[in-house]
Design a protein around this nucleic acid. Structure first.
Length: 224
DNA sequence: GCGACAG
DNA sequence: ATCTTGTCGC
């Protein structure tokens, strides 16, 4: 599929933050899709020995969760890991992987935060704006925000709050297991984001999209 | 100044 | 993220 927007990735730390402030204004935190037939999952891993990043994109049938298409890309890491500027390190190979994908999903689930970010523009929001598709940010740990432990029951959630603003949900996807951090990426409401993550996580802590992409990435990693 | 800090 | 080591639970 094709990108709806491009910008340089050759930026320094200060320029990257400025770009985030600018593009954050494009983020829409409301549902802007009707039916979802295909859901995409994204994951990136770092290969210590090749020194490269490996990105994987999987497309799943939203009803059966069957894999229908996938693509991987190995690329050099051109930006360091800096909390808050995560997307500038991980998105370049992810974008290349999406360009190899033929079908267009109606929803993308990302590994990393959406608007639960200092400048309200985490990796999920960044990818959503570049693809102009609904995206959900799904993190295993917190970047910013305060929250109370949600109930132990699956489906329970609490608000993730930053300076009095609700920026995401801490969602229990599995009874008694550590909750995950769900936030709006782009073109979706927080309530819909929670519903989709729950639907995509019928038996594990993380959504199937993330698990499938993670599995694919590790398969590639094992081959070098 | 000190601690926190998606992956 | 990745790597290691030790502990706990099924």
């Amino acid at each position: 599929m094709e990108l709806r927007m491009r910008h340089s990735w050759q930026l320094d730390e200060s320029e990257a933050a400025a770009l985030q402030r600018d593009l954050a204004q494009k983020v829409i935190q409301e549902d802007s899709f009707s039916s979802v037939e295909y859901v995409a999952g994204v994951d990136v891993a770092y290969s210590k020995h090749s020194g490269n990043l490996v990105a994987a994109v999987v497309i799943l049938d939203a009803g059966s969760l069957e894999l229908v298409e996938s693509a991987t890309v190995e690329d050099t890491a051109a930006f360091p890991y800096i909390p808050g500027l995560f997307s500038f390190r991980e998105l370049p190979p992810v974008i290349k992987a999406f360009e190899k994908i033929k079908m267009t999903p109606q929803l993308v689930v990302c590994d990393g935060q959406g608007v639960a970010h200092p400048r309200r523009f985490g990796l999920a929001s960044h990818l959503g704006v570049l693809l102009e598709l609904p995206t959900i940010g799904c993190g295993k740990t917190r970047l910013i925000g305060e929250y109370a432990e949600p109930d132990l029951k699956r489906g329970s959630y609490s608000s993730l709050v930053d300076h009095g603003e609700e920026i995401g949900s801490v969602l229990r996807t599995q009874e008694g297991v550590k909750p995950i951090f769900v936030s709006v990426g782009h073109r979706i409401s927080l309530a819909s984001a929670r519903e989709w993550i729950l639907k995509l996580s019928p038996r594990y802590r993380l959504p199937e999209t993330t698990r499938r992409a993670d599995h694919l990435v590790k398969t590639v990693l094992g081959r070098d």
